[in-house]
Amino acid sequence: MAAIEVDGLVVRYGRTVAVDGVSFAAEPGEVVALLGPNGAGKTTTVETLEGYRTPSSGSVRVLGLDPASERHALAPRVGVMLQEGGTYPVLSPVRALRLFASYYEDAYEPDELLALTGLADVATTPAKRLSGGERQRLSLALALVGRPRVAFLDEPTAGVDPAGRIAVRRIVASLRSGGACVLLTTHELGEAERLADRVVIVDHGRVVATGRPAELVTTGEEIRFAAPAGIDVAALGRWVGAPVTEVGPGEYLVAAPATPATVASLTAWLAEYDLPLADLRAGRQTLEDTFLRLTAHAGDDEGGGGTGAHHRAGGRGARGGPRTRRRHPSGSGRQRRRP
């Protein structure tokens, strides 16, 4: 039996569609990351699985149960870390953990969790005086108290310092090795890549891709370049001898290794038509490429020719060497304009 099953989930708030037909499943012992920009519907999906929301249509099952109507039966076996809040500011970690431990039949000892989450030094400090990262880790520790079979971690690494990230990784790994299913959300690609066995990329309430991080990133060697939008990719493809696609307005992908011959033929064709070349990159895709490619279209459509796919334009010229990350879609979110 799958630990988590989401089937055609739709959640509406009034006239807003927050989740628009999401389906995926997760097995015991598997770590799945819901990856997507802010407002993609990640939290709504997770909160439906936690029993806080009911589907407008479609269904969700956690350990075979309906999380909203069978919450009472499910609660002892599920751990929840909310995106924010959820802890008493006046309680110290040790008191909060002791209190939460009283709710469960077979709870972890507070000391074990304090050590696991690296909070032993601040065990008696009221939560309101903890740093943001420490509060996140307390929230994570509270999600683990009842030895959950399924853990929902909403943005567990948001605002967490490097030590906290390591703690999160350690905890997720220990949950997985204990056979628990972990569903976490993140808008940080690196975290999804590091933490998850499988990534479900969501945008605008829909699943746009799913797979192991490795599957999502290695689609083979390729060449990417930026040029004016709307060039004749069919003609160009015939010329260079490999399929060319316009992945975003003015952003192109050539499905061929960046051999000197291919690059030369590409630039020659562009020169022939007097088309400026804004950016040229070769190499393998990263998850970031996949993510940006998959989530760029919808935003651009709605944003009226938004800035998404043009971010590499700007006359930096051809660049074939190791790529630097120029834009990291973390922190305050992506720079792309959204409606």
């Binding site: 806080y52 609660a75 599920v78 929840v80 924010e84 809040g85 008493y88 509270l142």
Partner: peptide, 17 residues
């Protein structure tokens, strides 16, 4: 304040009831 801090929401996901 427990409601605004999300404590009540969080407790709703525990077996406390």
């Amino acid at each position: 304040f427990e409601r605004s801090w999300g404590v009540l929401k969080r407790l709703g996901a525990t077996p406390l009831g």
